[in-house]
Lab assay of single mutants.
Amino acid sequence: KVLVLALYDYQEKSPREVTMKKGDILTLLNSTNKDWWKVEVNGRQGFVPAAYVKVL
């Protein structure tokens, strides 16, 4: 399983997205889209901007 680090806070803007806080460790589920990556955080799955996270 691939983990990513949240570099910035992100507030979800649609039901398909998830909120994350800077420093959160998320599970990367899909990174085929260069702009939006699907992650799991706190038991929820959704998209975050790829530029806001870094693969650990």
Rank of each mutant, 00 (worst) to 15 (best):
L56P: 04
I25T: 07
T19L: 03
V48R: 00
D9P: 07
K22D: 03
Q45L: 10
L26H: 03
W37E: 01
S31T: 12
P49S: 02
K1S: 14
G43K: 08
K22N: 05
V39C: 06
R44Y: 07
V4N: 01
W36I: 03
T19E: 04
Y10D: 00
L29K: 04
K21A: 10
M20E: 00
E17Y: 05
V18L: 14
V39S: 00
P15R: 11
P49L: 03
P49A: 02
Y52P: 00
Y52N: 07
E40S: 07
G43M: 08
V2D: 10
E40C: 10
G23I: 01
R16G: 15
V53K: 00
T19Y: 04
Y52Q: 06
R16E: 14
A6L: 02
Y52M: 13
G46T: 02
N30F: 07
T19F: 05
V39K: 00
V4Y: 08
K21D: 04
E40Q: 10
N30H: 09
Y52V: 06
N33T: 07
D35E: 12
N33L: 11
D24V: 04
A6P: 01
S14E: 07
G43T: 08
S31N: 15
W37D: 01
L5E: 15
G46A: 03
P49Y: 02
K54V: 15
L28T: 01
V53M: 06
E17T: 09
A50K: 07
E40R: 06
V4I: 11
S14C: 07
G23T: 02
T27G: 07
S31V: 09
S31D: 14
I25H: 06
L7D: 02
V4E: 00
E17S: 07
W36N: 02
L7N: 03
W36T: 02
A6T: 04
S14L: 08
K38P: 02
K22F: 06
G43Q: 09
I25W: 05
E17P: 04
E12M: 11
L3P: 04
V39R: 00
A51T: 14
V55P: 10
K54P: 01
W36G: 01
G23K: 02
N42L: 13
K21P: 01
N30C: 12
Q45T: 14
T32L: 11
V4Q: 01
V41N: 08
M20N: 00
P15Q: 11
L56M: 09
A6K: 00
L7F: 04
A6S: 05
A50M: 05
E40Y: 08
E40L: 07
L28R: 02
T27Y: 11
L7C: 06
D9G: 06
D9S: 08
V53N: 01
I25K: 06
T19Q: 05
K22G: 06
K21I: 09
Y8M: 13
F47E: 05
G46D: 01
Q45M: 14
V4P: 00
V41S: 15
G46L: 04
R16Q: 14
A51E: 09
P15L: 11
L26E: 00
L28Y: 02
R16W: 15
S31M: 10
Q11W: 15
N30E: 13
G23A: 03
P49Q: 02
L29C: 06
R16M: 15
K22Q: 15
I25C: 05
Y8T: 10
Y8L: 13
Y52D: 05
K38E: 15
T32A: 14
K54G: 12
N33I: 07
D35A: 10
D9H: 06
L5V: 14
V2G: 12
V41A: 15
G23H: 06
E12I: 07
V18Q: 03
L5N: 03
D9R: 03
L28K: 02
E12T: 10
L26W: 02
D24Y: 05
E12D: 05
K1P: 15
L5F: 09
D9C: 04
P49W: 03
Q11H: 14
M20A: 02
Q11Y: 15
N42C: 08
W37C: 04
G23L: 03
L3G: 03
L56R: 03
K13M: 15
Y8Q: 12
W36R: 03
V39W: 00
L28Q: 01
V2I: 14
L26I: 11
R16S: 15
L3K: 10
V48W: 01
G46P: 00
Y10S: 01
N30M: 08
G43R: 05
D24F: 04
L26A: 13
T27M: 13
M20H: 01
G46N: 01
Q11K: 12
E17D: 06
E40N: 06
A51N: 14
V55E: 09
A6W: 01
R44E: 07
V48Q: 00
P15K: 10
G23N: 07
N33W: 08
L29H: 06
S14F: 06
